[in-house]
């Protein structure tokens, strides 16, 4: 999905920070790690409390132990119990199966999923080893969405405003169905762009993109509050649909194949 020659140009640091600060929590979640050799614990570490010699008793059943620790400790995000030989094997096996033809998406999706191939040896609680994700969306779902609904050579344009000011924007260029360009409004407007009465004038941005970069196939325009609500909602897809219904997001243009199908696609993502 991501082209190896992806061009990332004209990225406004202020806009990028807005997204980053929203999506990536400043406070790192508390995690507890146990490393062991055949049940003999060689390291017990708590990201909040440091070394935990009190957790170094031998491990008989790693899954149960992970759950016990998770239940016993307050405010732990996850517990990882790793048998060191399994970690070594994991990296060895991953690299042994590398092929130059494999795309980065395929490689990383495989790499992340493969952590789940060592039951009882690479253990996480809560027990879940997802594959590659983009902002919480599975890579495969994102790829399927692009393939099914978005013309293979076009641009996606997402813009959120704070008053008149462009608060955050993404211009994503596709070529042959692969993402080949990522930019923000810097690519089509002045730095620190503003657009008074954007609800009436947003088409100016579409036209600028059409003219300077290429045809926009999907445009979404909204305001800062709506984005914040979506990103912070537990059910992001549901929040998106609600915002669409309430007219807080303007979708224009929309690819022919996608019209009326947001619900189907988002339902899949949420599921």
């Amino acid at each position: 999905m991501i082209d190896e020659n992806l061009v990332m140009l004209d990225m406004d640091p202020r806009q990028f920070r807005c997204l980053y600060d929203l999506a990536v929590p400043l406070q790192k979640p508390r995690r507890i790690f146990l490393l062991h050799d055949n049940g003999h614990v060689v390291k017990a570490y708590d990201t909040e409390r440091g070394l935990r010699p009190d957790l170094k008793s031998p491990i008989a059943d790693p899954e149960s132990r992970a759950r016990e620790i998770f239940d016993a400790e307050q405010g732990v995000f996850e517990v990882l119990i790793l048998e060191r030989s399994a970690v070594r094997h994991y990296f060895g096996a991953l690299q042994a199966t590398y092929t130059p033809a494999e795309s980065a998406d395929e490689y990383f999706d495989r790499a992340f999923r493969a952590r789940g191939n060592y039951p009882g040896r690479i253990v996480k609680y809560p027990p879940h080893f997802p594959g590659l994700q983009y902002l919480g969306i599975n890579w495969e779902d994102a790829r399927a969405f692009l393939r099914q609904y978005i013309p293979p050579d076009s641009f996606l344009l997402f813009v959120a405003f704070d008053g008149d000011q462009v608060w955050m924007s993404w211009i994503i260029g596709l070529s042959g169905g692969r993402v080949t360009r990522v930019a923000c409004s810097d690519a089509i407007t002045d730095l620190d762009a503003s657009l008074p009465e954007w609800r009436k004038r947003y088409r100016e941005l579409i036209e600028a993109c059409n003219k300077q970069l290429g045809p926009v196939s999907l445009g979404l325009f909204t305001d800062r509050d709506t984005v914040v609500q979506m990103v912070t909602a537990a059910n992001k897809g549901g929040q998106f649909l609600r915002s669409m219904k309430e007219g807080r997001i303007i979708a224009d243009p929309v690819p022919e194949g996608l019209k009326g199908k947001y619900q189907v696609w988002l339902g899949r993502c949420v599921a």
Binding site: E4, Q95, Y98, F108
Partner: peptide, 18 residues
């Protein structure tokens, strides 16, 4: 080569490489 005799793959986000 790694200790396991495999290629050593660098995890570059756009294209891992040996």
């Amino acid at each position: 080569r790694t200790a396991q005799g495999t290629l050593a793959v660098y995890h570059f986000p756009f294209k891992p490489f040996p």
